[in-house]
């Protein structure tokens, strides 16, 4: 029991903190109720070092699909959501992706909304996959996409409880859990390069691509010097593959 992980939301392990300090990285803030760990790399090498340390480099996945979200450009037009619903036949009572909102205040005292697109984080270490009793959800060994095998799903909803990102819902029609699969069946496997949401975004907020490719836009975006990049709920150890930054 002593080894049990703290449930305190702002928890960053000493081990993690030391590792970051060793690399000369600034922990720029534990934000949004401690569920976000933001790192400000000082150089491209350091950004790479963090991602390597965290296990994001040299994974077996190729392409290693991920998404970078340029958060402050999101205006909640929800064209992404519309495109997702249409492409993946998402019913009204569920979602594969959605937009969260919080209120911020600028230097002049004006309040303004901050919109945060959320979806399945296609974790390196997905808690949903670990808990599924029937192996109905797996991490694709080629692409890293966390996929559903609907025919194996018994609808026990254990994965819903395990997911730190509320990225799953029970689909009444399929009698199974449904979730984002980066549009694998509806688009990527048919030769499309982008997910429906990324293709529909008018502000280039959702940048989709291959993290294993150093020439990809996603790789370049998260390896910029002096640019904070963060992930949601790092304390769960799930190693999410949706990265957030401001433009």
């Amino acid at each position: 029991m002593k080894e049990q992980r703290s449930t305190k939301p702002d928890y960053v392990t000493d081990e993690e903190r030391r590792a970051f300090l060793k690399l000369g990285l600034k922990i720029t803030g534990v934000m949004a109720g401690g569920t976000v760990l933001s790192l400000m790399p000082l150089s491209e090498q350091e950004a790479g070092a963090v991602l390597k340390l965290e296990g994001y480099e040299n994974t077996k996945y190729k392409p290693h699909y991920c998404m970078v979200i340029r958060q402050n450009d999101c205006v909640d037009c929800e064209k992404c959501k519309e495109a997702c619903i249409k492409t993946n036949h998402v019913p009204e009572y569920g979602f594969r992706t959605t937009i969260l909102e919080k209120t911020a205040t600028d230097d002049d005292g004006n309040t303004f909304p901050v919109f945060m697109p959320v979806l399945c984080n296609h974790c390196l270490n997905p808690p949903c996959v670990r808990v599924c009793p029937t192996k109905a959800t797996t991490k694709d060994p080629k692409t890293g996409i966390v996929v559903m095998h609907v025919e194996k799903c018994i609808g026990c909803k254990t994965c819903m409880a395990a997911c730190p990102y509320n990225a799953r819902y029970y689909n009444e029609e399929k009698k199974a859990i449904d979730k984002c699969n980066f549009c694998w069946d509806t688009r990527l496997s048919k030769g499309e390069k982008l997910t429906a949401c990324a293709a529909a975004c008018p502000a280039h907020v959702r940048v989709f691509g291959d993290l294993s490719d150093r020439n990809s836009e996603v790789w370049k975006l998260i390896h910029q010097p002096n640019k904070a990049v963060w992930v949601l709920r790092p304390e769960t150890g799930a190693k999410p593959c949706i990265f957030y930054m401001n433009d």
């Binding site: 402050n72 205006v75 909640d76 037009c77 009572y93 959605t98 937009i99 909102e101 909304p113 919109f115």
Partner: peptide
């Protein structure tokens, strides 16, 4: 951006229509 772009959420608030429900868990 969001000083003027109030989004679908902002629109729904202005119009007094609540967001369509989704599976809460």
């Amino acid at each position: 951006c969001t000083l003027c772009h109030i989004g679908v959420k902002g629109y729904d608030k202005m119009m007094g229509t609540s967001e369509k429900g989704h599976g809460e868990h």
